[in-house]
Simulated scan of single mutants.
Amino acid sequence: MTLSWTTKPFADLTLAELYALLQLRSAVFVVEQTCAFQDIDGQDQAAYHLLGYTESGALAAYARLFAAGISYPEASIGRVAVSPQLRRYGLGRQLLAQALTTVETLFGAQPIQIGAQLYLQKFYEGFGFRQQGAGYLEDDIPHIHMLRS
């Protein structure tokens, strides 16, 4: 399955796009992970929003992209999510590859920092990320900081 990609700053999102991305984030980070947390954290306005759509126009994959100095001293990628119904098609790999390319296009080649859920460490290592420091709990979920030079 191949997705079509679009990237928009917050101000350019349509209401339908905003609703779809919030719905996907809620489905993954709140419902699926049974984690009550403040997803709408005030950082969406500073992010570029990477949206991956199926041929039928459904939002299948999403990530937030930040310039250096917003979430971390380095550029960063966050809220990486793939629709639970579409996970068996390798969309996570497509999403992260597209996110890395888009960060470089938007902000230039530079290090990228992420706060990754610990169980995804090997996935991110496959894209050149390396653990930085000790693990930590975020919303009762084990996380690690990772950096891609």
Rank of each mutant, 00 (worst) to 15 (best):
Y124E: 11
Y48L: 06
F127H: 07
G42W: 09
R93M: 08
A47W: 04
A16G: 01
R79L: 10
I114E: 03
S83M: 06
E17R: 00
M146V: 02
Q121M: 07
Q117F: 00
F10D: 02
T105E: 13
E55T: 11
C35Y: 07
F127M: 07
L137S: 08
L22I: 07
R87P: 11
A99G: 14
Y62E: 05
S149R: 12
V30W: 03
S76D: 10
L24P: 00
L65F: 02
F29R: 05
P142N: 05
A99H: 09
Y136C: 00
G108I: 09
R64E: 06
G128C: 07
Q38F: 02
E138A: 13
T54P: 00
A75T: 14
I70N: 00
F107H: 11
F127R: 04
A63K: 04
F66Q: 10
L24W: 05
K122L: 03
A46C: 01
R148S: 10
T7S: 15
M146K: 02
F129P: 04
T54K: 00
K122M: 02
P73L: 13
L3D: 09
A11M: 01
F66I: 07
A16E: 08
E55N: 12
Q121H: 08
K8P: 00
S26F: 03
S26W: 03
A20P: 01
L91F: 15
G57P: 05
K8L: 15
G69W: 12
Y119I: 13
D139T: 09
V31I: 15
V31D: 13
R93G: 15
T105F: 01
G133C: 00
T6R: 15
A67N: 10
F129G: 01
I144R: 14
A11I: 05
S71Y: 00
A81E: 04
P9Y: 04
L21N: 02
F107S: 01
E17C: 07
P111T: 13
T102C: 12
A134T: 12
L137D: 14
L120D: 06
L91M: 14
T105N: 06
A75S: 15
F10N: 02
G69L: 03
M1D: 06
Y19D: 08
L91R: 03
A134Q: 14
R93N: 12
G90W: 13
M1R: 12
I77Q: 11
F127V: 04
T105W: 01
Q113V: 11
K8D: 01
A46D: 14
L24Q: 04
I114Y: 10
R64C: 12
Q117S: 06
Q85T: 08
V82K: 00
Q33L: 14
L95F: 05
L13R: 04
Q132E: 14
G108S: 07
Q94G: 15
Q45W: 00
R87L: 04
G108Y: 05
Y72W: 08
R79E: 03
H143F: 02
D44N: 08
R25M: 01
D140C: 05
F107A: 03
Y19G: 05
L50P: 11
Q23L: 10
L86T: 09
D12E: 14
A134D: 15
L24V: 03
R93A: 14
E138F: 02
I40Q: 11
S4D: 08
Y62W: 12
A63D: 01
F123T: 06
H143S: 01
R64K: 13
E104N: 08
C35M: 04
H49Q: 02
S83E: 13
S71V: 09
A20C: 08
A81Y: 06
M1C: 08
G92K: 09
P73R: 09
L91Q: 07
E32C: 06
